[in-house]
Simulated scan of single mutants.
Amino acid sequence: MKEYNPYCVLRFGHNRVRKKGSRKTHTSYFTGKAECKFRGCTKYSFCIIKDPKAGKRVKMKVRVSGKIAHPEDVIHGRHIGGEQRNNLKEILKKKGPAETFYDNIGNADRVSLANGNFNYVPSKTALRMMLQKVINSEILDRDVFREVDVINDTSEQMMPAGYVQYFAKKPLNIILFTNTQIKMYTKAVKSGNLHLYLDATGSVIDKVPYQRTRLLYYAIVIEGAGNNPPIPVAEFISYRHIVSDISNFLSRFQYAAQKVSQKYNNPKIVEVDFSWALIHSVCQTFNRFSTNIYMEKVWEGSHTPMCTVHICSAHLLHAAKTFVKTKPKYLKPLLMGSLARLIQCKTVNEIGLNIHGHVQSAFE
Rank of each mutant, 00 (worst) to 15 (best):
Q344W: 06
L127H: 01
V324F: 02
V62W: 02
Y102P: 05
Q360H: 05
L140Y: 07
P229C: 01
A108W: 06
F12N: 06
P229R: 03
I269G: 00
Y197N: 11
E235M: 09
T154P: 02
H318L: 13
N107S: 10
Y4E: 15
A340C: 04
Y255L: 15
F236L: 00
Q344P: 02
V9N: 00
I175K: 02
S123K: 01
Y264P: 05
S112N: 03
G226F: 03
R63N: 15
D109E: 11
H195G: 09
D199W: 04
R110P: 02
P52V: 11
E235G: 14
A257F: 00
A126M: 14
I75F: 14
I351C: 05
Y330C: 13
T178S: 09
N119R: 03
M60K: 04
I48Q: 11
F30M: 12
P333I: 05
K53W: 06
K183D: 03
S65R: 13
S45G: 04
V309Y: 05
I246G: 05
G337R: 01
L215S: 13
F249P: 00
G96Y: 13
K19N: 12
N117D: 08
S191W: 04
E300W: 09
K183W: 01
P305M: 14
Y217L: 15
K327P: 03
R212K: 11
I139N: 10
D149N: 13
R240P: 04
I80P: 07
K325M: 05
H310K: 08
H14V: 09
M184G: 05
R288S: 10
K50F: 04
K56I: 08
K346M: 13
R341P: 00
W276D: 15
G21L: 13
Y7Q: 04
P160A: 11
E83D: 13
L127P: 01
Y185I: 03
C312V: 00
M60A: 04
T31E: 12
L92M: 10
H76T: 11
A168E: 09
C8H: 03
E99V: 06
I151C: 00
I182G: 02
E235A: 12
M158Q: 04
A34I: 12
P160H: 04
K183L: 10
G82W: 00
H303Y: 11
P122I: 06
S22T: 08
N193T: 10
L127A: 03
N173R: 08
A69L: 12
K329C: 11
D73R: 14
L172H: 07
Y197S: 06
N5C: 12
L334V: 02
T304V: 09
F145H: 15
E3Y: 14
C41M: 11
V150P: 06
Q344V: 08
L216V: 02
L194W: 08
D109C: 10
G192Y: 02
H26I: 15
R23A: 11
S302D: 14
Q360W: 06
I242P: 06
F363R: 00
T25D: 00
R78T: 06
Y239H: 07
E223W: 03
V58T: 14
V272F: 07
E147G: 00
R78E: 06
V309C: 06
G40H: 03
Q84P: 03
L10K: 06
K297E: 08
Q84W: 10
T213W: 12
